[in-house]
Nucleic acid binder design. Sequence first.
DNA 1: CCGACGTACTGTATCGGTCAAGAGGGATTT
DNA 2: AAATCCCTCTTGACCGATACAGTACGTCGG
Lengths: 356, 356
Amino acid sequence: MAATLQTIADELGVSRSTVSNAYSRPDQLSPDLRARILATAERLGYSGPNPTARSLRRGKVNAIGVLLTDNLSMAFTDPYAVAYLQGLAEAASARETSLLLINLPTDDEAGRRVVSNAAVDAFCLYCVPDWHGALDLIRQRGVPIVIGEDPNAFGPDASYVGIDERAAARRLGEHIVSLGHRDIAVVAHWIVDGGVTGEVSADPDDLRYYVTGERVRGFRDAFTAAGLPWERVRLINAAANHREQGSAAAAHALDRHDRATAILCTSDVLALGVLDALGVRGLAPGRDVSVTGFDDIPDAEVHGLTTIRQPSVERGRLAGELLLDPPEDPAGRRLTLPVSLVVRATTGPNPTKEQS
Amino acid sequence: MAATLQTIADELGVSRSTVSNAYSRPDQLSPDLRARILATAERLGYSGPNPTARSLRRGKVNAIGVLLTDNLSMAFTDPYAVAYLQGLAEAASARETSLLLINLPTDDEAGRRVVSNAAVDAFCLYCVPDWHGALDLIRQRGVPIVIGEDPNAFGPDASYVGIDERAAARRLGEHIVSLGHRDIAVVAHWIVDGGVTGEVSADPDDLRYYVTGERVRGFRDAFTAAGLPWERVRLINAAANHREQGSAAAAHALDRHDRATAILCTSDVLALGVLDALGVRGLAPGRDVSVTGFDDIPDAEVHGLTTIRQPSVERGRLAGELLLDPPEDPAGRRLTLPVSLVVRATTGPNPTKEQS
DNA sequence: CCGACGTACTGTATCGGTCAAGAGGGATTT
DNA sequence: AAATCCCTCTTGACCGATACAGTACGTCGG
């Protein structure tokens, strides 16, 4: 039988409240008594106020729930995700709050139980399959929610911190067409659910994964504005947002006589894989083939990758702040952050055009 | 005023227990009444049984606390750590348990508060500074603990899942000396706290960070057994366990006339950085310079790195299982897992010896 | 000598559930 | 027809703390 506040109170002949105060409000009792209480607690092996009971009474648990899909490491191997979590953790930590990583099982029923039992003050939804049955439960929980991708995914009650994915992608596309490229491939992840890496034909207006969809649409915006029909663009699905998949996808753009002169990727990770593929083939990025990424992860600079810089850490930090200190003004709970085009060495003028 | 079980009970004129049963034990009441209860709950905007209250009563919160040092992303950018967490999450998820990432602030007082308030069933200690004041609190909490590095760090009450770091490192060292190498450099991370990357002289028996210490000692075991005095080995500190630091450290072994012919690293990440450095200098790994890593992260195979394979995911998984289903037998709570030497392309015979 | 005030502590309600034992009533057994 | 059983629901205790109002006592100014 573990010791509780009452055990100590009885032992010393004081009230439970006083023992509680010894821990939570040291100024409410004499230093002398407090010392005796702590000593007795130590002696009886009391482990300190029970966090659960305290949370119940206080109505606050000091935790933010972060929903992740089944494969945790998928989230952690994505540098963008790591940066986001870092920001979120910073904001949480500054408020003495922890992150509850909720691994959503594919089993719907178990998923609902896990979500129902999660003691959190708020939820951060982040790259979660929007068709999962547990999502309704989260909405019902009535706690603050922040989402990071599709601003419309959870209705207007949810906070949102994001970027204008489509406009950002358009800027990349414009950069590429302004360099004279016409033979363009787009490498995008998760165009097809559970699909394999390879060329696909898909309507950009009808992609399931929001981020990819917006980015692909942004590319198309730039192309069509430049008079380049979408049909001329080669769309290549990457089965996962991994560097290796980027390499594999690149093969479909490079190993053919009508080689693409520019490859636009929906993430830096994929773009790095594309660069690997170029290296293997002895092709020079920015000269023979132009490559762009998205996110500006730390490795992007190392490899001179032209990309869109988005404030990943900041995104996570703001998400945390929105959850823990919600602004009065509802408008302040939906933030679209600025991005910038970072032109580095992996993009250059269309080489075939120069020759003509 | 949010709805509770009582609100719904009053509304329908049933007892609170019955409403509770509607959620937690559907077989305890008629389907008809249950349907009515759920409908009323929905109508009143009831968010389901409060997880905190439920946890208090049940005495279980379905969460494992994972202690991390201040910089979260440090843990997530380390592939070994990611694998470990993946395993831990798998074990937890299988038991409908989540991971509470506790970001331990450098501020001692705040750290204690965060730890005290963390509602968890168990703690997983993992790469935590062992001098932090909050660690005592954790021990006091009286919940199961598993540690992953120094088996003696938390006393015999804590569970332990690890490998024999020293013996494993020794095998790498033996491999290298058996290839005839005599000019050896060791690249190790965190030899010096907050130090810079560069050559240092340090007593292997006196390194603060346990894992590095054991691995360096293992290297030395092999060297001295082969008659190679430790003084002949060049010890290079890497300021962080990052690929870039590996490259920077390698410079100290490569850019001099008495170039090392073998570089042993305390992690694969550092070794990959060393390989980068070789590449820049036009040196061939395994021919001009032999390089070894440690851990066998996924990228190791890609780069043909000779290394020690340890079951990282398994380590995390077992840690989780030990915490959630503790075996009766105390001996079963201290596991040392087997490792294997994986010889790939980055090690080969000493080239200078061949010439003579 | 009295009211005002501050300090140190107590008492009780409350947070929102779960659990074990029990009660009422219809169906089944003997 | 009495005994037994099961199904469905109720009762009351309990989980371990915190909040707030209140009490007792000492001190101080007037």
